[in-house]
Computed example of a mutant assay.
Amino acid sequence: MAKISFTASRAHVAQGALVELERRYGRCDAVEADFIVALGGDGFMLHTLHDTQHLDTPVYGMNRGTVGFLMNAYAAEGLIERLEAAEEEVITPLAMRAITADGAKHDALAINEVSLLRAGPQVAKLRISVDGRVRMEELVADGALVSTPAGSTAYNYSAHGPIVPVGSEVLALTAMSAFRPRRWRGALLPSTAEVRFDVLQPDKRPVMAEADSRSSVRNAVTVIIRSEPRLRHRILFDPGHGLEERLIREQFV
């Protein structure tokens, strides 16, 4: 019988599901498991993927939260059969290095996106370079983000960025409420690109950098973002409900 490690968010409904599933299928440490089952919403799924990134164990999410874009429908029955029939999607994270005014370097990984947000009353001013070449001398906006295809329906989509097909090896660079250049919403870049943001007037216009809304760095002056192909996350979906299908379906809601 397959060994399953269950993990759940703090939500009451998720904790109840955890008790029921461990009663049915047993309890196993993640290091020894064949599958990891995450119970919660998308935020908890990202949390689980980050926490288990040192393992090569596939993660199957069941929705006991709100959005559930990365999750499968919840059912206590037939879990072994669902896991064995599941389709696997492999995604690679983004690596962020944020440098603050005192020269400190802060490294973090993001599965969905790395975002730069104004941290004061005035809009941010950013210089954008791609692979060492300045592409925009000054972006005046509330912020900007770089998104993976898997994360393109999350914060990126809310900021009016494009939905990027899985497997396209493309990153989305999206501006948030751009003031200058007027209505500029961003660009599509190859996944191999290294994107650098330099914060202009950081004392007057402070900026915060975030990786998946988990790792926050205040007073960032330089943020460098690139794909990290040496790491991979294996996510399982029920047949016919994989990430590619979900990305397509999202565009016709």
Rank of each mutant, 00 (worst) to 15 (best):
L200P: 05
L189Q: 02
S213V: 04
P149W: 06
E113G: 01
D102H: 06
H47Q: 13
E77K: 15
M176C: 03
F44T: 01
I163M: 08
G43L: 07
L46G: 00
R182P: 00
A76N: 03
T52W: 08
L55N: 02
A187Q: 09
R232V: 07
E20P: 02
T66E: 11
I224V: 15
E250T: 14
G186W: 05
T100V: 13
T222D: 04
A101R: 15
M208Q: 15
E194C: 10
R97D: 03
Q122M: 12
R118V: 10
P181F: 02
V90R: 15
T192E: 13
E250N: 13
P181N: 04
P165Q: 12
A178D: 02
L94G: 01
A33K: 05
L21D: 02
I80M: 11
T48L: 04
V123G: 00
V170P: 00
K125P: 00
S115G: 12
M96I: 08
S9Q: 04
D131A: 04
V123P: 00
L21Q: 05
A211T: 11
E194L: 06
V170H: 01
T48D: 01
R185L: 11
D203P: 00
E20W: 01
T100Q: 14
S215A: 14
P181G: 03
T66I: 05
A144K: 11
V123Y: 02
L94V: 04
N63T: 02
N112S: 07
V164Q: 06
D42E: 07
G120T: 14
S158D: 06
A172V: 02
R185C: 00
M96R: 04
D29C: 13
V90Q: 12
V207D: 03
A119V: 11
G242R: 10
A17G: 08
A124V: 12
I91G: 01
H50L: 12
G43Y: 05
D203L: 15
G161T: 03
V253Y: 13
A33T: 09
R135A: 00
L116V: 13
A193C: 06
L46D: 02
D56G: 15
A98P: 11
R183D: 04
P165A: 07
H12P: 01
I225D: 01
G61D: 04
E137S: 11
L18P: 03
D56N: 15
A73P: 02
S215N: 14
Q15M: 08
A220Y: 10
L126F: 09
V123Q: 07
E81N: 06
R214L: 12
T57D: 08
L18R: 05
R23S: 14
D198G: 02
H12W: 03
L39V: 08
W184Y: 14
A193G: 03
H233E: 09
